[in-house]
Amino acid sequence: MTTGGSGMKLYYFETINGKKACAVAKYLESPVEYVRIDLSKGEHKAPDFLAVNPNGKIPALEDGDVRLWESNAIMCHLARKAKSELWPTDPAKQIEVLKWLSWNSEHFTRQAGTLYFNYLVKPKFGLGVPDEKATEEAIGLARQFAAVLDRALEGRTFLLGDHLTVADFAVSVTLPYAEAIRLPIEGFDNIARWQSLLDEIPAWREPFPSLQAAAA
Results as ranks from 00 to 15, higher is better:
9 K>N: 10
10 L>R: 05
10 L>T: 02
12 Y>H: 13
13 F>K: 00
14 E>W: 00
14 E>H: 11
15 T>Y: 00
17 N>Y: 12
25 A>P: 02
27 Y>G: 04
29 E>F: 03
29 E>G: 14
31 P>I: 10
32 V>E: 01
34 Y>E: 06
36 R>T: 01
37 I>W: 03
37 I>Y: 04
38 D>P: 03
40 S>P: 02
41 K>R: 15
41 K>W: 05
42 G>F: 06
42 G>P: 09
42 G>H: 09
42 G>S: 11
45 K>E: 12
45 K>F: 11
49 F>A: 10
51 A>F: 09
51 A>K: 13
52 V>Y: 06
52 V>Q: 02
53 N>Q: 09
55 N>R: 11
57 K>Y: 04
58 I>P: 01
59 P>V: 05
60 A>N: 07
60 A>V: 06
60 A>W: 00
62 E>R: 10
64 G>V: 13
65 D>S: 14
68 L>I: 14
69 W>L: 08
77 H>F: 13
79 A>S: 11
79 A>P: 02
84 S>T: 07
89 T>H: 10
89 T>C: 04
90 D>K: 05
92 A>G: 07
94 Q>S: 09
97 V>A: 06
97 V>T: 04
101 L>Q: 08
102 S>A: 13
103 W>P: 00
104 N>T: 12
106 E>N: 14
108 F>W: 14
109 T>K: 08
110 R>V: 03
111 Q>S: 07
111 Q>E: 14
112 A>P: 01
113 G>R: 00
114 T>E: 13
116 Y>C: 01
116 Y>P: 00
117 F>Y: 15
119 Y>D: 03
119 Y>H: 15
122 K>A: 07
123 P>H: 08
123 P>V: 07
124 K>Y: 12
127 L>N: 05
129 V>W: 00
129 V>A: 14
130 P>M: 02
130 P>Y: 05
131 D>C: 02
132 E>I: 02
134 A>Y: 00
135 T>Y: 04
135 T>I: 14
136 E>N: 11
137 E>K: 13
137 E>I: 11
137 E>W: 00
138 A>N: 01
